[in-house]
């Protein structure tokens, strides 16, 4: 499901303040459906803030004022009739540190269903099926199918992060937001998550914030460079890295600052 333009997320003149500090200035952008789009830029440039706007989880961290509109699948999520609960079902988030809940693997995966669904969807066979489907999608089923009752916190970090992605899937999200999903992982873990991203793209729109320019270059179709709360450049990834249009972009990807 996407609107006629093929954009999953459209931001128009988004301004955001933490108290009096302006973290986003006039952000306008389109994120294409089914693509992996990366947000890069130095620390404090607003990329995580922008990411958190897309499912409005920012508002849980007090003192946020947001102006402008963000259309997700064609609907302005800042409209008063938008339910945050339904919005976050469609737009899930994966964090820097894997954050499985301190319960079993199984319960982690069905947590979203328990939160949202009722009746038949919560019967054992339906839940079992959801768990198998979600874990298969993130390549964990084979490793964990005999350990579904183990505490999720005892898994390896890479498995934990995959589990955090799997936790979103039973809710049938359209968009998956990833906030530096590999920065706590080793090389192999990073590679596994990146592979998973490739497998998931197309079905899901993925927006990834990363400090690692090489990762942005490897993984993303489009790349957005941000600086001091503004979008400086937004192009296809290879273009942005090979022939950046903006001097600030050039200097950043050359590593002159960061």
């Amino acid at each position: 499901m996407n609107d006629a333009t093929g954009h999953s997320i459209t931001a128009r003149d988004v301004n955001l303040w933490y108290g009096k500090f302006q973290a986003l200035c006039d952000v306008t952008l389109n994120i294409k459906h089914g693509f992996i789009t990366s947000l890069i830029g130095p620390s404090g440039c607003g990329k995580t803030t922008l990411l958190r706007c897309f499912n409005r989880v920012n508002e849980r961290y007090n003192y946020v004022t947001t102006k402008g509109e963000i259309l997700v699948l064609g609907k302005n999520i800042y409209d008063p009739d938008v339910s945050l609960i339904e919005l976050r079902k469609s737009v899930g988030m994966v964090f820097q540190r894997p954050n499985p809940l301190p319960v079993s693997v199984y319960e982690n995966v069905v947590f979203g269903l328990r939160v949202h669904a009722g009746g038949d969807a919560l019967r054992k066979p339906a839940l079992d099926e959801a768990v198998e489907k979600a874990l298969t999608e993130v390549n964990l089923w084979h490793d964990l199918k005999d350990r579904l009752d183990h505490k999720a916190i005892t898994l390896q970090l890479e498995q934990q992060q995959k589990l955090c992605i799997a936790r979103l899937l039973p809710l049938k999200p359209e968009i998956i937001l990833m906030d530096e999903p590999c920065s706590a992982l080793d090389v192999e873990g990073t590679a596994a998550i990146e592979e998973l991203m490739f497998a998931l793209k197309g079905r899901y729109t993925i927006v990834i914030v990363t400090h690692n320019m090489a990762q942005a270059r490897r993984t993303s179709d489009e790349c957005i460079f941000m600086l001091l709360g503004k979008v400086i450049e937004h192009r296809r990834t290879e273009e942005l890295f090979l022939t950046p249009a903006n001097l600030q972009t050039t200097e950043y990807i050359e590593g002159r600052y960061g």
Binding site: I85, E86, F95, N99, F111, V115
Partner: peptide
């Protein structure tokens, strides 16, 4: 806080 974030982001009240 990460436990809470995990909940918020699947739309838990």
């Amino acid at each position: 806080r990460s436990f809470r974030e995990a909940c918020w982001n699947v739309g838990a009240t």
